[in-house]
Design a protein around this nucleic acid. Structure first.
Lengths: 337, 337
DNA sequence: CTGTTAGCGCATTCAG
DNA sequence: CTGAATGCGCTAACAG
């Protein structure tokens, strides 16, 4: 920068003003400085600037696994808005490991990020709260935390904003659809018992069944790992033990694809013998045969919304930037027409 | 930090030494300082440190689209090694937009990243070269650039390292396999004409066909967008115009899945009427029916290797850290048994 | 073993 | 409209 100042015959201050388009600088001076910057290929140091301004123009993004389509979709949305707003994104992949995740919030604090977006945190409420307390602005995605809690030191934690998809409604949408299609024995392949989303969808499922005046049958609810293999294995079991089931609501599209394979193995036709509804609407849902009827969760959009919310909070907004509940949408395809 | 020094009754320097485990500090002093750091929940400022040391412990990762499984796989590998080595990753998503990509290398320079990993750059050689000249250490993934070029200012550009998958060999593997299975009329759905990988695979395809003493028939080579839809549309065309084809080698798994759907539409059985071989081996390849025979490209591993290479180069290695050609592996599944 | 003196490259006062 | 002084929080090179 001093090189630029010398070459242009001005002070450091003037160069700084030109770079930041601030203060009053005469047009000629401004142009001359610009020219020198161009010629010297001068690029201001973001770190020096950050040290002086106390802001890094960088946000942290914590995900359990970027290679998972849900999170890469979110990451894509985050990167999109961040770029448009001139922010950089520090990508933190916890590899589904809570200790590593915890450590990552520390790293982000050392990097002095302006804010963080935490996706589907695998941390216990207590730990998450502590980790978030290092940061002034946080937006949670698909994870909630009671606002205004106090930690063990009696400090009032900054309440985190959150964007979350309405899992109750998603389950209602799916089950109601199946009911309307005449199904009366609808199973639920519920995913991992620890899953927040899975539990919320279970409630939605149960409420809807009851609201229709049907009995709740715990025997047609199976848990399974949230993978194709997990869905496949449990579906084989479920379909053989409970032959009355004519429709199956699944934790997510991957398990639903597993069910598809189980049906192929067992010689059950889809949708004639078994109607299948997935969840999430990942790209793959359209590519399997039959294509999956599923609940669309707008991950990309959620990433965008989370970033916008974070930016608003960074700018000191104090209303309408606390929560954002995204509505899923039923997408009817061949697996449950 | 001065708070810590005061509380511990030592100088800033001693605190610094304790933090960095450097220099000789008496065990008692060290322990006392550690304790104070703990109590005060002091966290050193990465930016101040970066300004002083001239290194940010951060690398830039540029991808055309994180939500694309290839790149999210690579990103995952990068994040994994980076974390293990104490590096942070600045995620840059160019959204397949060359101008934006170009701009991102500038941003990374302003952030003063220690090095950058550039995946499948969409930039013209000239522009990429210029962008990379801003950075001292670069590793290219699935993109090459002649080493030792000179730019228009006569400067010698630091040669970038690269990790790339052997597309020639991958195509040979696939085509040879089909030949051995008795196919003599093997089509190639070649993807976008601009694709580097597609062009290399085309050469591998042609060489292998010729080596087998078979004629080259340009009519059974079709280009298409690298998507399910693209593969679907072109496959319908190709299969109808060239009914003799008994096997089809595809640009990637997505186009192969499109072909699968085209066969379903046209009533052609897979693999009985048409054997299909994909490329990449994305997770989805195992989930479609029939599962795809394909060439496995270890994206996750490539991300890891690229990061390791970058780190070695950062440490001043000058041999064995220039190129890494990864070998694809044929995975036989139901679509071409 | 420990402290002192200087910057790192910029932005923010306040004076001209 | 422009410049000089001061500090952001830390490390590196020297001195004790």
């Amino acid at each position: 920068m001093s090189d630029v100042a010398r070459s242009a015959g001005v002070s450091l201050m003037t160069v700084s003003r030109v770079i930041n388009n601030k203060g009053d600088v005469s047009p000629e001076t401004r142009e001359r400085v610009r020219q020198v910057i161009e010629d010297l290929e001068y690029r201001p140091s973001g770190i020096a600037r950050s040290l002086a301004t106390q802001q890094t123009k960088t946000i942290g993004l914590v995900v359990p696994d970027v290679s998972n389509p849900y999170f890469s979709g979110i990451a894509h949305g985050v990167a999109e808005i961040a770029y448009a707003e001139g922010l950089s994104v520090l990508l933190c992949d916890s590899e589904e490991n809570p200790e590593r995740e915890f450590r990552l919030y520390q790293v982000l604090e050392e990097k002095r990020v302006d804010g963080v977006i935490s996706c589907a945190s695998r941390l216990a409420a207590e730990d998450l709260q502590q980790a978030l307390s290092w940061h002034s602005e946080v937006v949670l995605v698909n994870r909630m935390l009671e606002a205004g809690n106090r930690n063990d030191k009696g400090l009032h934690l900054a309440s985190a904003g959150y964007v979350i998809s309405d899992d109750f409604e998603g389950a209602r949408l799916a089950v109601n659809y199946l009911l309307r299609r005449g199904h009366t024995c609808i199973g639920y392949l519920a995913g991992p018992p620890q899953s927040y989303g899975g539990r919320r969808r279970l409630i939605g499922y149960q409420e809807t069944i009851l609201a229709a005046g049907l009995p709740l049958n715990p025997k047609i609810i199976y848990h399974c790992p949230p993978t194709v293999e997990g869905g496949h294995a449990q579906a084989v079991e479920l379909l053989q033990c409970q032959p009355d089931i004519t429709a199956l609501f699944c934790f997510n599209d991957m398990t639903a694809i597993g069910v598809l394979r189980a049906c192929a193995d067992l010689g059950r036709r889809v949708p004639e013998d078994l109607a299948i509804v997935g969840y999430d609407d990942i790209p793959m849902a359209t590519w399997v045969a039959p294509a999956l009827t599923t609940c669309n969760v707008p991950f990309h959009e959620m990433g965008r919304l989370a970033t916008q919310m974070l930016i608003e909070r960074l700018q000191g907004c104090d209303e309408d930037c606390h929560e954002n509940i995204v509505q899923p949408r039923l997408v009817v395809r061949a697996s449950a027409p």
